[in-house]
Design a protein around this nucleic acid. Structure first.
Lengths: 241, 241
DNA sequence: GTTCGCGAGATTGTCAACAGTTGTCGGGCA
DNA sequence: TGCCCGACAACTGTTGACAATCTCGCGAAC
């Protein structure tokens, strides 16, 4: 499990562009990056609720930066789909409706399927081992019904596949999309019995990769996200407090 | 593959986000939008070559805006993947390498396949007519070897399918990706005999949509972009003057 | 001839202040 | 009471100035 964490960091394909989600980039150098990362994290953590207004002056105080900085940071988040800005009305945390979340899951389904197929072509024995470790952890998490650990491993499992796929463009787009639906998606894994089914689906994906069978990997991943979509669609629209 | 495609079928235009490429937004209101649209257009038109430095002061003079505006506009273009910024070193037009262009075509392949499948589920007779008109135009363009008309119709054909698909998220991502590879892709259609093959592929896609056959539409679209990718890979790396 | 140090100029990063727009609150009127 | 309207407050949009950093050419030392 421990090595797995390291691996995810090294994503670098043919892509000159830096990773979209600089969440981990807390370096004490670039103020703007620090601010945008901070706001992003707060949104993803639910600290700023969807629909909530993001007032520039408040963010300035919060992060100890000037308004120009905050302004650019907000623009970056707009491009990531986390924030929306209306002229003369300011910025708010973007509300992702259920139908829109379904759109996003559909897109993810295709991109993750691509990643899985490529991963099945390119995986090394070390990659196999990494996936195996994570699956072992996920199995344990299901047994103990530890949702937080499960969510973490789930994310890392998908991230590993994307890394193995070697397609940095695909990885970047998925990173961006993931940020928009974390909230909705967590609800799915709260449904009783969902974890066991999900674990099974993940194992199917991993087995296809071990077998270096791209088509099977693609199909398995598609089915996995397809069921996620179904479960999501079955949820009643939730209201945020 | 078939059930997977069906599952998430009922998605409709749920996207609150405006289109990413505000190219057409020449409204005399929002300065920042005007500037970013102008720079984007200049890049796409090849007026600013890949790798060229974009100096803020020059852009200010060019578009009659202040540096803050130009700065935000550049940030927007960074998020679209058209520009890259290095701290204290400024902005340059991003160079899309051939391997990266291949990555992008791969991603497009999956997303356009999704759009085609959904379009085959949702198309109306009016949509059919629209596609038929475009194909007629493309046929004529091939006969007269009019590359410019062909390129225009080709873009509109794909755009129509995306519109019909109703998945705004997918459409936005494709818009963004398209901007990054126009240059490379144009080279492909310059190859002798390519147009005839391409026309054939487009007709296959359209026929699957007329027949309301999502699987066939998806397959046809995948094959289409798959050959684009192959042709692209066969090109020798080009150097920009 | 080559390499290293070092200013001068160019360019970007950050900030505080000014201008413009939107929403709200309280008073006057039917 | 209910409605219109003007003034005020709260924000956002835009600008120009100042500080920090990089680049490039020049001269000196080896």
């Amino acid at each position: 499990m421990s090595e797995a964490t390291e691996a995810v960091g090294l994503v670098e394909g043919a892509s000159g562009q830096p990773t979209a989600n600089g969440t981990a980039a807390g370096g004490g150098e670039d103020i703007e990056a620090r601010v945008s990362a901070g706001i992003r994290q707060a949104i993803l953590a639910g600290e700023y609720a969807p629909g909530q207004r993001l007032i520039e002056a408040e963010l300035c105080a919060e992060f100890g930066a000037s308004r120009s900085i905050v302004r650019v940071a907000l623009q970056v988040l707009v491009s990531e789909g986390l924030v929306e800005i209306q002229r003369h009305k300011g910025a708010r945390v973007r509300v992702i409706s259920l139908p829109e979340a379904l759109e996003i899951v559909e897109v993810r389904m295709m991109l993750e399927a691509l990643a899985a197929a490529r991963a099945a072509q390119l995986a090394t024995p070390e990659d196999d081992a990494e996936l195996r470790d994570m699956l072992a952890g996920m199995r344990k998490a299901v047994e103990t019904t530890d949702l937080l650990v499960w969510r973490d491993l789930n994310e890392r499992f998908h991230a590993s596949i994307q890394r193995i796929s070697g397609n940095g463009t695909c990885t970047r787009m998925l990173e961006r999309l993931r940020g928009q639906v974390v909230r909705h998606q967590f609800q799915v894994s709260l449904q009783p019995g969902r974890l066991v089914v999900s674990l099974d689906e993940h194992e199917k994906i991993a087995n296809a990769i071990y077998a270096r069978d791209p088509e099977a990997a693609e199909t398995a991943m598609r089915e996995h996200l397809s069921t996620v979509g179904e479960k999501l669609a079955a949820l009643r629209p939730t209201r945020y407090p």
